[in-house]
Nucleic acid binder design. Sequence first.
RNA 1: GGCGGGUUGCCCGAGCGGCCAAUGGGAGGGGACUGUAAAUCCCCCGGCUCUGCCUUCGAAGGUUCAAAUCCUUCACCCGCCA
Length: 430
Amino acid sequence: MNPNVATQSKALIEDFKWRGLFSQSTDEAALIQSLAKPTTLYIGFDPTAPSLHVGNLVVLLALRRFQLAGHIPIALVGGATGLIGDPSGKSEERSLNTTDVVAAWVDRIRVQVSKYLDFNAKDNAAIVANNLDWTSPLSAIEFLRDVGKHFSVNQMLSKDSVSSRLEAGGISYTEFSYQVLQSFDFLELYRRYNCTLQLGGSDQWGNITAGLDLIRRIESGSGHALTIPLLAKADGSKFGKTAGGAIWLDPEMTSPYAFFQYWLNTDDKDVINFLKVFSFKSREEIEALEKSHAENPGAREAHRALARELTSLVHSADICERVEAAARALFGQGELSELDEATLASALAELPRTTVKNGEPIPTWVDLLAATGVVDSKSAARRIVKEGGAYLNNEKISGEDFAPSKSDFLCGKYAVLRKGKRDLAAVELL
RNA sequence: GGCGGGUUGCCCGAGCGGCCAAUGGGAGGGGACUGUAAAUCCCCCGGCUCUGCCUUCGAAGGUUCAAAUCCUUCACCCGCCA
């Protein structure tokens, strides 16, 4: 057993509070006491997309924090619950995904989640579970008799996730049942692994406490709930979303370059909070960054630290270095034409691109812009040009009919297209 | 099963036979100012072979010179009744 666990338990909770990761918990003193020895805890992730996104990272990293503190983390992938749909935090009924789709997503998410946990830890190796394993063998009759009997509809109706939906227009029996399934998960994990703590976003409180009730009723056992506030941005907009949609952890869905840029462009007002929530830096380190940020916000040291740590964690240190070097080259004060070919090539490798065959006529740059995907359509490309927001090799050029000539290709090979301040793309002459 | 309401562009939401690519708000985008930040101001925001043309208002048919707007059927959502 990790000898530090006992002394760490109070510090762990204090650290969560300081980081803004503590929304509410069941009896806090009792929780701290139970954490004095290695505790098995879990968080569930429902497969609602082919990848997790940065929003999921908040709780996933919280699970990691617990493991680092000596506890045993279970990442539960919701192969069953993902088929049902959690009404928590949703204002309307969701359409169901097919079982094939959900199964495929489960596989991908299991792999993703595993990346943040340690499965080789000596005393507290992580566990990944899928709630389909214990849900699918259960017959409807068994479920209703053995599990359903312990639930009072009155109580179920009073849960926020249900009552708000009743007011907002309605809820299906399917989604209404979600809390029962999640409770059953907690019960099963309690039985199988003596899992006594469930973490979740603050909208999960009702589901988690329902599970605790079930454990008490059936097994006369006790456990704890700890919820984490939903991450809010200073300007009120939704965290983790951009024009292009969510910021995904999957590099195929959000390129590491875009991922790094997302963090680098964090609002000043949010950056310290984000460091607390996402970073594994110590309080001292973060406070030092806070100080330097306050003194010279333009240097964006805190932003850079945030972007680096997360890109390294989610992708890799190597990839992080590459995309950062690319950004440095492309955003640098220096002339693009002064970059050597190798630097240029590796920087551009991180960007969306299109190619032109040597010898063939070079299309107008409206066509090129559209082809790289930095704009959605040729109309959009025209619009940008008209508005003076299009650049070739960092030079603003107007005129929709403009077509780059060979001499515009740096090192004879590459042209850098830019939309607005920071949306870059490459054209490669083959 | 019956009765009633609904389905409009990324989201919310007007329009209720021609003046509709469709009012307004939000989100988003560009410019200026800056620090690849925020705030602010100006502009834009279906597509294309772009002074015009094409495709959109849940789906498919129909009425009409003309439909997002009227009719029919279908799908989905919501409410109420038993």
